[in-house]
Write a protein that binds this DNA or RNA. Structure first.
Lengths: 257, 257
DNA sequence: GAGTGGTCTAGACCACCGG
DNA sequence: CGGTGGTCTAGACCACTCC
């Protein structure tokens, strides 16, 4: 990486120009896992205040190009992991290759107004909520709150220990024939508990995915999942006919073209 | 909104606590379009430096709760717009209700390495690229670069004016029978040109969606779309059987539960 | 011109990590 | 312990919008 980096006059902010310079350096002179010079060193080298440098690093971290670790340094991030989110492969409890989820807890409570609306049931109706963490290669990638109206699980056995109840709910869901799902994805930030489960500080960006599952013409579950935006790329597989080359082969198309 | 807001001792950073306080105020005391007191006023009221207050506002803006306009003030944001992204309804050129796209330009050039890989063709092969902007309610919500190998469009007429060529490419695509698509969504930031098309400053967060379209067992197009993360919520409709209550009815489930 | 958010500075102290 | 990133401060000036 060059010594100065020639901050141009100024139609564009310094931090943005810095980001560009650093990005090029990352692409050409560093590789995954390497540590950058520390912030005080970098800010001196580029002749800017540390806060300004940090603004540039913030951008690059948001883009998933850098990882900053307190007490360690700033590292070049690994490319984002493609995380499949279709029901068949991974999303639905107990399906094929899923030891990928770890159940955190399970509660049973009356539905809040918002939750009732999302599930299309009456406010105050009993709802089971299973919280799970999705693991990819052993690392926590997402949290999920799976809300299921008690009415949708007629055969659920009576009270049990919490972990048993979670298992029961999940097992019951497996048996339902889900014939439709509707998803939405938006940007959010991790709140305290989520952040802890994801091993990230509060305020970290997440991709919030909301999924409504339908069976026999009725909604039977509402899942709210928060995926770490720094390390995850959500991939939506095709139920269709052709096996398409996995997305991710497209790495770098956006900027390189 | 209270006058002080009682910043607690400190296991949690001030800016994060501030965010919480402001979030509650937004939910209870303000409504869409209202302007907050200015930053100097707010920072004084909460007894913090302006930079600290801004850190809290940054978070809320990332969450899509605030919009800041230079020279105007900080406003309460409208809820995010649900933007459908399935091929049938909106994504594919010329489909049903689409006057929703505005073509920006159309270029024909050899494929870069990354692009060739994404399309499964040889590097340097000729590719048509149509850039478009997606409009929702008249506002620019996304940009798209649609890359199509020339080889996939055998009947494309010879050279023409750029706007005509764009039209031709899109029309040819309509005629192909697409039988598969593979999507990925991740977080990114808007670069200069994108940012301009989206009427946002560079560095604004975007949801980057990469879509591979297949027809007759081969990839025929690669689309890279960048959606404004502040105002968009991507919704994935079901090709399935049941008409599911639109996601968005689930508003507020995540925090309220 | 007055008022807004956007950028930038130069410093300070803290929390965490490793040897 | 020294070194790292994380937070916070108090100020300055700029770019923009509206009157």
């Amino acid at each position: 990486m060059g010594t100065t980096g020639q901050l141009s006059a100024v139609p564009e902010p310094k931090y943005w120009h810095l980001r560009t310079v650093l990005l090029k350096a990352i692409d050409t002179e560093f590789s995954t896992g390497q540590v950058l010079p520390n912030e005080r060193e970098l800010s001196a080298r580029f002749g800017v205040a540390r806060a300004t440098l940090r603004q540039a690093l913030d951008q690059l971290e948001l883009e998933g190009r850098l990882v900053r670790r307190r007490g360690i340094g700033t590292l070049i991030a690994a490319p984002r992991v493609g995380v499949p989110v279709n029901r068949q492969e991974e999303g639905w409890p107990g399906a094929a290759r899923s030891q990928a989820w770890r159940t955190v807890d399970c509660t049973t409570a009356p539905a809040s107004a918002a939750l009732a609306k999302g599930l299309g049931i009456a406010e105050g109706a009993t709802v089971h909520t299973v919280r799970r963490v999705r693991l990819v290669e052993g690392r926590a990638m997402a949290t999920e709150s799976l809300h299921v109206p008690a009415a949708a699980l007629p055969h659920l056995p009576g009270f049990r220990a919490e972990s048993d109840r979670a298992r029961s709910v999940l097992r019951q869901l497996e048996r339902l024939e889900v014939d439709g799902e509707s998803r939405a994805v938006e940007l959010g930030v991790a709140e305290a508990e989520e952040a802890a489960l994801l091993e990230r500080p509060p305020g970290s960006p997440v991709l919030v995915m909301t999924t409504q599952y339908a069976a026999a013409g009725r909604l039977v579950a509402l899942a709210v999942s928060t995926y770490r935006a720094d390390t995850c790329k959500l991939t939506f597989g095709e139920t269709g006919l052709v096996e398409v080359t996995p997305v991710g082969a497209a790495e770098g198309v956006r900027t390189a073209s």
